[in-house]
Design a protein around this nucleic acid. Structure first.
Lengths: 339, 339
DNA sequence: CTGAAAGCGCTTACAG
DNA sequence: CTGAAAGCGCTTACAG
């Protein structure tokens, strides 16, 4: 509650004065990583720095070195556990590589124009991980033009280096799982088609079903978002159909949970009456009343590879896109269907 | 993919040279907020800045001004929607007040010592919002000693300015709701008692029940965490009791969901066989198979008040602690109990 | 209004 | 090893 009287901030000049050396000597003594030494001056400087709890001004150091060791991250929001988990992976890896991260939630901004990176650019981040790209996004081109290294993470773009899960494969895995269980009348919940994850999962699924001789009727593709409420609305729509499908691929775990909950209200038991597959295998999936079969994405890993790729770019190393493998985790929501 | 040839970065010096004026004139012309003007030089500078997509180096500006306009935030993690939502509220308000935020996830750090704020201090944040404090936390004292303004948000501490929901009241609301429905045999799921939210909710609840003449047996207080899995474990434990309670206060929505799911597996239907109350009213609460009665916390509001309070502190204004009111949202999980 | 100078707190070649 | 100087990109009192 009480605020210490704002005493003069401790700078290297303070330490220099008190030890009686030149400021450049202080700077050298405190250089990270610290070398083992028995130099008395160095030791004296370090112990005084500890005592006064000196923290060097990163602002000044960045300015002088021309390197911020800062990575910018743009996310749509952090309340979606998919984005939060990926960002956690990014931050953890960035820390271990000696970088800090700065995150921008585009949900908190007025518009999604390239301007959403401006505050990051002003902070002179060395590169940007774009986790919130969408169809028609101008940001990547704008960064390319300015020579700022960037990587798309989670979602892909048409002409940009991306670190993502192979969502086409994920969709196919879901299709194969259902096809192998004899499902031919299936529906797909298609989340926001302006982002690659939604599009690819649906496409991979349709392709996978086709490979098994099943053509999914366009009328059985239901548009939705990435959340619970839209899953419930989708269930509502499906309940109005003349005939229920025997299986549904939801492209997203929260959406799947919404479907499951709404169906149950209507007396349709997922697993028994209807097979259901989610996507990402977030924590809740395995804990739902009927444990949810889901295509697991290695999200933490995704974030950490995103950082590694970006740092390669920053350091001028050659790198390529990264595509991580999803895998399907079968659970009761697809296993107890009678057929 | 291709990286633009890293052309010379555009600085104010670049603009000055091209327009043929002194750099200080450029600085003045680009000062925010921009004044309307018809000064030709100013207009020329601004249009060149736009053309070259000049973004002033905030690092340099911060150093010179001695103000970073940066707020640090420490959170335990961001995968918990409670913390993510609060942080979103913080970031939104900070933006609208002209500040940026920098977040530290303590889950990504080796230890929780006061050192978790060091990178924020090195970045010269003007103040810190501590969202992850716990019993015995040394960080607040350490910041006080250094004269760095800070506010506890969400969780409270013993001697620190905090912006929090009145969790004692929240616990009491839950107790009153249950007592009014005739429950006398109740259990409490007590999350991590090293954080104030857990302690206060339990204490308020016990007090509220006592006010209605109900003494909760210590054996009916079950320790747990803030997540689904620990709710399921708690349900497991309760299912082993000789007699089930008629109502449970879970202190957390995810924990409540875990209880609900595990009970259902065991044939115990929440709402019908057992009343259940969660806390925070996160999105999932209303969407659960049995909609969950929950004590709603205004988390976005909490974050935004946290920022306002911190900025008051930074600007040397007098402020006091903020306590926001929770309110109970009754749903089926407590309404259909037969009594 | 504009220019010239000083300085924010560091780091780093360059001498000694 | 240490000191002295220059400079990173800004901003801001001070002159003119």
């Amino acid at each position: 509650m009480e605020k210490a009287s704002a005493s003069e901030p401790v700078t290297m000049a303070t330490l220099a004065r008190q030890v009686g050396v030149h400021i450049s000597t202080v700077s050298r003594a405190l250089q990270e990583p610290r070398q083992e030494t028995s130099n008395r001056t160095t030791l004296k400087i370090r112990s005084l720095a500890d005592e006064l709890k000196f923290q060097p001004d990163a602002t000044a150091s960045r300015l002088r070195k021309g390197r911020s060791r800062l990575i910018g991250v743009t996310v749509p929001n952090l309340t979606d556990p998919v984005h939060a988990t990926t960002y956690e992976g990014i931050d953890r890896e960035a820390l271990s590589r000696g970088y800090s991260t700065m995150v921008i939630m585009s949900a908190n901004l007025e518009d999604l124009s390239p301007a959403r990176a401006n505050s990051l650019i002003r902070s002179r981040v060395e590169g940007i991980i774009i986790q919130d790209t969408f169809e028609g996004d101008q940001l990547p081109a704008s960064l390319r033009e300015r020579g700022i290294p960037y990587v798309l993470c989670l979602r892909k773009g048409d002409h940009d280096l991306s670190v993502a899960v192979d969502d086409l494969l994920g969709g196919r895995l879901a299709a194969e799982h259902l096809a192998a269980r004899g499902h031919t009348d299936v529906a797909v919940i298609s989340p926001d088609s302006s982002v690659s994850t939604g599009r690819d999962r649906v496409e991979g699924f349709l392709e996978g079903m086709r490979a098994h001789g099943v053509q999914v009727d366009a009328a059985r593709i239901v548009p939705a978002g990435f959340d619970l409420a839209s899953g419930q609305r989708a269930a509502e729509a499906i309940l109005g159909w003349a005939k229920l499908p025997t299986a549904i691929f939801a492209c997203n775990d929260l959406t799947a949970a919404g479907l499951m909950f709404r169906f149950r209200e209507a007396g349709v038991e997922v697993g028994r009456d209807l097979a259901l597959i989610g996507y990402n295998d977030i924590e809740i999936a395995r804990h739902l009343p009927v444990p949810l079969t889901s295509v697991a994405s290695p999200l933490q890993e995704l974030g950490s590879q995103g950082v590694d790729t970006l740092i390669d770019l920053i350091e001028g190393k050659t790198t390529g896109p990264v595509s991580l493998m999803p895998h399907l985790i079968p659970r009761a929501s697809t296993l107890s269907w009678a057929g």
